[in-house]
Amino acid sequence: MELWIKIGSAVLLATMFVVIFPKAKHMLANSPKGSAQDWLGALFPIVLVILFVIFLISLV
């Protein structure tokens, strides 16, 4: 990767960080808290996604 693309990419990602940081801070402080049951309900489809990606990898 050329140096200017590296620097540009880093600047872009750093800008994203700066833009998103206040929202993330606000969300962390103000999001409703999920119960263990809620997190299990979210974990289930995410585990399926992981298994599906592993399946895709096995196909290449």
Binding site: M1, L13, F17, I20, K23, N30, G34
Partner: peptide, 24 residues
């Protein structure tokens, strides 16, 4: 799934930091 908001945004920030480091 509104309770995931804070976790997802914080996770995304961690990914951004890792991605910046990995550029170099």
């Amino acid at each position: 799934f509104s309770f995931m908001g804070g976790f997802l945004f914080a996770g995304f920030l961690v990914i951004l930091v890792a991605a910046i480091a990995n550029i170099f």
